[in-house]
Simulated scan of single mutants.
Amino acid sequence: MLKVEYSTRFRDKEKRTKKLQESVSIHSIRPQPPPGDTKGFELMDKVEAYHNDG
């Protein structure tokens, strides 16, 4: 298990004083894509998308 601290998620959403932390399995972690990767997408391409923490 790894401890993850989010840079844009907070435990107190209004005050934004303490960043959200949680433990996740090492199998849930992947490296970030390389910077500047501006590949376009075609219809039916498989992508990963995140919205509202999921």
Rank of each mutant, 00 (worst) to 15 (best):
M1S: 10
L2R: 12
V4W: 05
E5M: 11
E5G: 00
T8C: 00
R9E: 15
F10G: 00
F10I: 00
F10E: 04
R11L: 13
R11H: 08
R11I: 15
D12Q: 05
D12A: 02
E14A: 15
E14K: 15
K15H: 12
R16S: 07
T17E: 15
T17A: 11
K18Y: 03
K19M: 06
K19N: 15
L20H: 14
Q21W: 02
Q21T: 15
E22Y: 04
S23R: 11
S23E: 15
V24I: 11
V24D: 00
V24E: 01
H27Q: 08
I29L: 15
P35D: 06
P35F: 07
P35E: 10
G36P: 07
G36T: 12
D37R: 10
T38Y: 05
T38C: 08
K39T: 12
K39V: 01
G40V: 05
F41P: 00
F41I: 01
F41Y: 04
F41G: 01
E42A: 05
E42T: 03
L43M: 04
L43V: 05
M44Q: 14
M44T: 11
D45S: 10
D45C: 05
V47P: 08
V47Y: 05
E48N: 09
E48K: 13
Y50M: 07
H51L: 14
N52I: 10
D53V: 01
G54I: 04
G54F: 06
